[in-house]
Amino acid sequence: MIPMAFEYHRAASVEEAIRLLEQYGPDAKVLAGGHSLTPLMKLRFAQPAHVIDIGRLHELRYIREEGNVIAIGALTLHRTVAESATVRQRIPVLAEAAFRIGDVQVRNMGTIGGSLAHADPAADYPAVVLALEAEIVAQGPAGRRTIRARDFFRGPFTTALQPNELIVEVRVPVPSGKTGSAYQKYPHPASGFAVVGCAAVLTVDAETCRDVRVAFTGVATQPFRDTVVEDALRGQRADEATVRAAAEKAAEGVQPLGDAFASAEYRRHMAKVYARRALLQALTRAT
């Protein structure tokens, strides 16, 4: 449980962090809250020769309202997101998910940028940013670019981020109209990570599901939008029976993960249950 020797750098600015990433290439790792990276290093699963600490880049800790977008700095703590009045009022599902991450210590250290960059297939934020159609702002030597959440996750622990890029911001559009959202999670009793996590965002118009977005984490090798469930709901009556029927289609075209705690078959079953629970809660909140 002792990491391999590494050189420690503390970046004084985003630019310096990127410069260091350029300089050390694949031998370097950025350290934010350290709640995914340090455990991996202690187990020697990750052995970076250079660790670039961005923890003091306070300019990346913020939550701002920019019209219909909530901009969240990459270093914003899970706890800050969970407790933010802005997030709770305008995108409550995100606060709900942040509150379900790990425990107090983890939420006091872990960051939204770190969680997204790490892309654990059972992490909570990924399902929510997918369901909210958020954008991830990355900065590299050539400047900034924006990546849609749905293009961001490429596989387990794999993202669209370049090795010399930093996540600097997450931009979450505030859903319009009569929208309800919910995050329902079944945590692994040991790790606390999602065995199944479902984020649902439902917009109701004249008793019809005008828009619906459902995303899962924990179920498969990467977080995903469940378009089958969404298609079964969009344009349909916004009532319990319709939701129940749609939720039955959850994870249909997906090969669920299986492990000693929960088999693939059980995960598929739980995906249906948690889709229904999240959607019904979202429906109640929308109406």
Binding site: H188, P189, A190, S191, A260, F261
Partner: peptide, 22 residues
Amino acid sequence: LYEWAVYSEDGQLLTASFNEYA
């Protein structure tokens, strides 16, 4: 309800950390 030290048939401990052992 929770704790379970699980060995594979060939003697590998599958629940060898607090990530798996509850």
